[in-house]
Simulated assay, not measured.
Amino acid sequence: MEYTYLGRTALQVSRLCLGTLNLGVRATKEESFEILDRGLDRGINFLDTANQYGWQIYKGFTEELLGEWFAQGGGRRDQVVLATKVYNAMSDRPNDGGLSARHIIASCEASLRRLRTDWIDLFQMHHVDRHAPWEEVWQAMEILTQQGKVRYVGSSNFAGWHLAEAQEAAARRNFLGIVSEQSVYNMVTRYVELELIPAAQRYGVAVLAWSPLHGGLLSGALRKLEEGTAVKTAQGRAMQALEAHRVAVAGYEKLCAGIGADPAEVGMAWVMSRPGVTAPVIGPRSIGQLESALGALDLNLTDELLAEIDQLFPPLGNGGPGPEAWAW
């Protein structure tokens, strides 16, 4: 396993982050525990969840599942860099969502109880809250870090200017601020290249890429549909995008077949090769999918292959960051 620093911090994390969106929902508890154990055995020390995950059963379910896994002992909790999130409404009550100081602190304490742990390594804001002033957000985060309940603060689904605004406000308080940003990023969805990644690099913020295979679209979707083995690919984000990108996806699968590589591994390796990316957030629902993601670590993409991928899934505008992407 390869390890890298989380942004400008001294904290080391694996180049793959094990996301838990499917655990306990598309995988049974036993399968989920097996995935978690295998990931830990293979060196994945970075675990991502959210307070609302498992909402298909009830909100908070996935954190409880992880808490049960930690409770098995064996040093599981101590070996893991644990990330969870705050923002989404956990009930219909008006103050049970967003980034008010009240909700940030209450959500952290609720996550700690569900996770059966004393601290959260990375507490991520799941979305920007346009009603919450940064003075309020950072005051709450400072309280949690001073109490030892949170080690670092991250963000998710922010724009580049949100990062800048947040960091400048944190700097005025002599607070570390945001150390990671989790954004959707894959060959099909490349918006973050314009301003988010340049801003993250400027401020020393790690970029974590969620949906690195666009919900299965880049994992051999056409082949799986032909074989009748498509599961996630046949629904949701991947299915909606398939009609718009069918020609490119077909070319991509042909390109992968030509080099004898699995499309899922190539797609994951592509994300890891992008400047500024610390780790893709993988969401395996089986040991096979976990092993496929691990296989991407050993896949080196040539400049020629990367150029061919850009031809199939071109970057926005002129390519590269803004303003050059849309100007001279």
Results as ranks from 00 to 15, higher is better:
Glu63Lys: 09
Glu63Ala: 04
Glu64Ile: 13
Glu64Leu: 10
Leu65Tyr: 07
Leu66His: 09
Glu68Trp: 09
Phe70Gly: 01
Ala71Cys: 00
Gly73Cys: 11
Gly73Pro: 06
Gly74Val: 12
Gly74Phe: 06
Gly74Leu: 12
Arg77Cys: 05
Val80Leu: 15
Leu82Glu: 06
Leu82Ala: 13
Ala83Glu: 06
Ala83Phe: 03
Ala83Tyr: 13
Thr84Phe: 09
Lys85Leu: 09
Val86Lys: 01
Val86Gln: 02
Tyr87Leu: 02
Met90Arg: 09
Ser91Phe: 00
Pro94Ser: 07
Asn95Ala: 09
Asn95Ile: 01
Asp96Phe: 04
Leu99Lys: 06
Ser100Asn: 07
Ala101Ile: 03
Ala101Trp: 11
Arg102Lys: 11
His103Ile: 08
Ile104Pro: 12
Ile105Tyr: 09
Ser107Arg: 10
Cys108Lys: 06
Ala110Met: 10
Ala110Val: 02
Ala110Gln: 11
Leu112Ala: 06
Arg113Leu: 12
Arg114Asn: 05
Arg114Asp: 06
Arg114Val: 01
Arg116Met: 00
Thr117Phe: 04
Asp118Ala: 11
Asp118Lys: 00
Ile120Trp: 01
Phe123Ala: 03
Gln124Pro: 00
Gln124Val: 13
His126Cys: 01
His126Ala: 12
His126Ile: 05
His127Ser: 04
Asp129His: 06
Asp129Glu: 03
Arg130Pro: 10
His131Met: 07
Ala132Asn: 05
Ala132Thr: 15
Glu135Lys: 09
Glu136Arg: 11
Glu136Asn: 11
Val137Asn: 00
Val137Tyr: 12
Gln139Met: 08
Gln139Ser: 15
Gln139Cys: 10
Met141Leu: 15
Glu142Ser: 12
Ile143Gln: 08
Leu144Ala: 05
Thr145Gln: 15
Thr145Asp: 08
Gln146Asp: 15
Gln147Asp: 13
Gln147Val: 07
Ser156Asp: 15
Ser156Gln: 11
Asn157Arg: 14
Asn157Ile: 11
Phe158Met: 02
Phe158Leu: 12
Ala159Tyr: 15
Ala159Arg: 15
His162Ser: 01
His162Leu: 11
His162Trp: 05
Ala164His: 07
Glu168Phe: 09
Ala169Ile: 01
Ala170Gly: 12
Ala170Leu: 04
Ala171Cys: 11
Ala171Gly: 09
Arg173Ile: 01
Asn174Lys: 13
Asn174Leu: 13
Asn174Cys: 10
Ile178Trp: 07
Val179Gly: 02
Ser180Gln: 00
Gln182Arg: 15
Gln182Ser: 06
Gln182Asn: 08
Val184Lys: 14
